[in-house]
């Protein structure tokens, strides 16, 4: 019994750890897409952020400095995206994809040039990483059956960025649905003409959304390279930005449903880690490749089958111009 609880809790704990970058990216995408900019560049911004975080954390031996660098670099990418598609009304998908390609190439080249370790950054010492934190009274409570295990192993023992992410979800929900900025953000993605005639600058709002998107992607990148692992690896985002985009669609561009979509994808990811090499009853050992494909298959199934009625923000993907 206790063993089952332990296994379940550890599966859920790794779900949480895998979900964090997805959640941060999906929230980033939420700001961008709610403002009317299709953000296919989440992946690239996160990757650039991961590299910046690992590099600066290594040089300055500070995880927080790395985080700040990641956010700045990712915001710079977001502003380039904004400059191309808001100021110059370029195609949002093409510009976003270009940033993704740029991020893959640039991070690898710079990593080679600066660190000569085959495209990765040097391993970070614990002091330069986000390390697990213990919540208060863990020692006392962990002896309580079930609840103690849940507290000690599921709620406690994560790094600062996990808790930050947990706080960000309700914060984003509040901002989007309860504030002036949120009202304008939701409006500009639906009908920018209405926003313009209400005396609000469409471009300014969209740039603000891109700033938020960049900052959140930066945190996600820093999480990957300085919390989850101890260095930057080439293409370490491995499609998580796209998965986050899928979760955002599955969550119908709403913060809380998007959170659950991210958790679901992360759960599939955590599960596949555990199912490798395990003989399933009645099926036997499933090839590793098939198990690894699980999260992606889930994505395809969910997107194809269950989100038929998801309405994207109506103006999403359309550069704003006054003439119709």
């Amino acid at each position: 019994m206790e063993d089952l609880v332990l296994q379940t809790v550890s599966l859920l704990a790794s779900t949480v750890r895998l979900a964090v970058p997805l959640i941060l990216c999906a929230l980033a995408g939420l700001f961008a897409e709610r403002s009317g900019v299709v953000d296919i560049g989440l992946e690239g911004k996160m990757l650039a952020g991961a590299f910046a975080a690992a590099s600066v954390a290594f040089w300055l031996q500070s995880a927080w400095a790395g985080l700040a660098a990641a956010m700045l670099v990712s915001i710079a990418f977001a502003l380039v995206h904004g400059f191309a598609c808001i100021t110059h009304r370029g195609n949002q998908v093409v510009a976003g994809m270009a940033l993704n390609v740029l991020a893959v190439g640039l991070t690898a080249v710079l990593a080679f040039a600066w660190f000569q370790e085959g495209g990765k950054t040097p391993a970070l010492a614990d002091a330069a990483r986000f390390r697990p934190l213990q919540l208060p009274f863990v020692a006392e409570i962990s002896t309580v059956p079930v609840l103690g295990t849940i507290y000690a192993r599921l709620l406690s023992g994560h790094n600062a960025l996990v808790y930050l992410t947990a706080a960000l979800v309700p914060l984003v929900a509040f901002v989007v649905f309860r504030t002036r900025f949120g009202l304008r953000l939701r409006a500009v993605g639906e009908n920018p003409h209405a926003v313009d005639t209400a005396g609000i600058s469409v471009a300014r709002l969209r740039y603000q959304a891109m700033l938020a998107s960049g900052a959140l992607c930066g945190i996600a990148g820093a999480y990957l390279s300085t919390a989850q692992s101890a260095s930057f690896l080439r293409e370490m985002t491995a499609g998580k930005g796209f998965l986050a985009l899928a979760a955002l669609i599955f969550g119908k561009w709403m913060p809380i449903p998007t959170l659950f979509a991210c958790l679901l994808f992360a759960f599939a990811d955590a599960l596949q880690g555990r199912l490798q090499g395990v003989a399933l009853p009645g099926i036997g050992v499933v090839p590793v490749q098939a198990i690894q494909a699980l999260p992606y298959l889930l994505t395809i199934l969910l997107l194809a089958g269950f989100v038929g009625k998801a309405h994207a923000p109506r103006a999403s993907g359309i550069p704003y111009s006054k003439e119709k």
Binding site: R178, T179, R180, F181, L183, R184, V195, A198, G199, I200
Partner: peptide, 11 residues
């Protein structure tokens, strides 16, 4: 309200 919200919070 859009554009005439009367404060940073909507309430």
């Amino acid at each position: 309200l859009l554009g005439a919200e009367g404060g940073a919070l909507l309430k």
